[in-house]
């Protein structure tokens, strides 16, 4: 299995705050087929509707999550930067991106294979549970921020 992992990527993933404290064996396992990727400003990391086949750990730069609407085709609803993660569409069926993710500064990221992740989480429920416990706060925080955004609109 491990012949398909890039040691440099494994180091980067292990150093990323999201994977702090995880079993090194687990990190090694999910790093199969993982690669380091770079994007120039305006390049898309994810395209709405396209298969969500990777999970990004941002190592450098900044990414804008864009929602499209008729009157506002490119509305940025959030930016994600260094030490943060990008994407949960890979975990939620039908595994397609729900937003565009566009680099606004040169981005370096670790792209983990969604297929490997899903398979690993399913076959190692303990690791899977630990991963979800780590992943939930990211979702919860984004939900809360969205709520604050909604409340803010009425604050004045």
């Amino acid at each position: 299995m491990s012949q398909e992992t890039d040691p440099k990527v494994v180091d980067a993933v292990r150093a990323h705050p999201f994977f702090h404290g995880f079993d090194p064996a687990f990190v090694h396992e999910v790093c199969q087929h993982a690669r380091e990727v770079r994007f120039e400003p305006d390049e898309l990391l994810a395209k709405e509707g396209a298969p969500a086949d990777v999970f990004y750990l941002i190592l450098e730069g900044k990414v804008a999550l864009e929602a499209g609407a008729a009157d506002n085709p490119h509305l940025t609803v959030q930016t994600v930067g260094r030490d943060e993660v990008l994407g949960w569409s890979w975990l939620v069926a039908p595994h397609r991106w729900r937003f565009d993710a566009r680099a606004t500064k040169p981005v370096r990221a670790a792209a983990l294979s969604a297929e490997v992740l899903r398979r690993t989480l399913a076959s190692h429920p303990t690791w899977g549970y630990q991963f979800l416990i780590r992943f939930m706060p990211v979702l919860a925080e984004r939900l809360e921020n969205t709520r604050i955004q909604l409340l803010d609109l009425h604050a004045h």
Binding site: L65, T76, Q78
Partner: peptide
């Protein structure tokens, strides 16, 4: 929230 003219943080 911002359009593409904004290169700063959004959130």
């Amino acid at each position: 929230a911002a359009g593409r003219e904004w290169y700063g943080d959004v959130g």
